[in-house]
Design a protein around this nucleic acid. Structure first.
Lengths: 107, 107
DNA sequence: ACATTATGCAACCTTTTAGTTGCATGTTAA
DNA sequence: TTAACATGCAACTAAAAGGTTGCATAATGT
């Protein structure tokens, strides 16, 4: 829900891989998401819970299967509310800063 | 250096605040970055070390002072190499997916 | 009905993380 | 030269994160 939860959820490489996996094929069950992963099902469950908590995925039960759907909205929010600032902000390049610093040192 | 290091560095709210602080005024000393923060200088040092390790900031010594400069490049990399995929990818919206699911359930 | 399948829940362990305190080192100004 | 200042380094602690094992529960297919 918060931007902090999103950042924290994205910090783990296994969770980003799960998202990538869902990106490749959305709506997978827990079992499918566990295939070919070097981790127990329970560990994957925990990662998915963190992703769901951060609203990065939504789940739907179909019988005894739990389907997982990617929700790109929080990623988009990080992009617009946080990253864009640094992309188009008034930051000078490091090279420009070094030059400034050298000039400051001229005394 | 790696995208993983960048994600991990950005996961902590204090570190993002430090980046925001440098964004507002670049080239601050450690002492300046510590002002008005509820944390010891040593804790801030550690956060800055993690940010530097992730190449999100660069530092220059001026006498006994250490100046900190923001480097937006890794943020930009996250944006282009990871986030953009989810923004313009072939993902359907959750609403569309729910509709699909309901149709699948018509048996 | 009953064995199988898909998942959940809980306790536990280990490693990492975020923070602290205490002391050391190098630089500057009087 | 010496006191004050800016920072570094190291040891330690508490809490969080990532993972495991074991057992429970609910749905499915025969």
């Amino acid at each position: 829900m918060t931007i902090d939860a999103t950042f924290r959820a994205l910090a783990d490489v296994s969770r980003r891989q799960l998202l990538d996996n869902l990106f490749a094929r959305n709506g997978q069950t827990l079992g499918e998401l566990c295939e070919g992963i070097d981790m127990t099902r329970q560990a994957v469950t925990k990662h998915l819970a963190i992703l769901e908590e951060a609203n990065l995925i939504a789940t739907v039960w179909r019988g005894r299967e739990k389907l997982h759907y990617l929700n790109p909205v929080p990623i988009h929010e990080i992009s617009t509310r946080w990253i864009h600032k640094y992309e188009r902000g008034p930051l000078r390049t490091l090279d420009e800063l070094k030059k400034t610093l050298e000039e400051d040192g001229h005394d």
